[in-house]
């Protein structure tokens, strides 16, 4: 089994670096979006499509 896995993974360094970058990025984004501080901003932004500017004519 081990040799089967390794035969498909003949250059482990770069993919491992890639996975670490992805996990760091994912955890970072997760932390950022769940910050309590950002909640009110997101609540404001989510309504943007429903506002087109004030139509005065």
């Amino acid at each position: 089994m081990k040799s089967l896995v390794l035969s498909q993974w003949d250059l482990p360094l770069l993919p491992t670096i890639a996975l670490l970058i992805f996990i760091s990025l994912f955890v970072g984004v997760l932390w950022w979006v769940t910050r309590e501080k950002n909640k009110s901003t997101y609540e404001e932004i989510k309504f943007l499509p429903l506002k087109e500017g004030n139509n005065h004519e």
Binding site: F22, L25, F26, V29, L30, W32, V33, T34, Y42, E43, I45, K46, F47, P49, L50
Partner: peptide
């Protein structure tokens, strides 16, 4: 943009949309 416009209600979770974006692009 258009589903909230058409349904006249905001996106379900803006937070999820951010996670969606970055994960998908990466």
């Amino acid at each position: 943009y258009f589903i909230p416009k058409a349904a006249k209600r905001p996106v379900y979770s803006y937070r999820l949309s951010i996670i969606h974006f970055w994960s998908l692009v990466f």
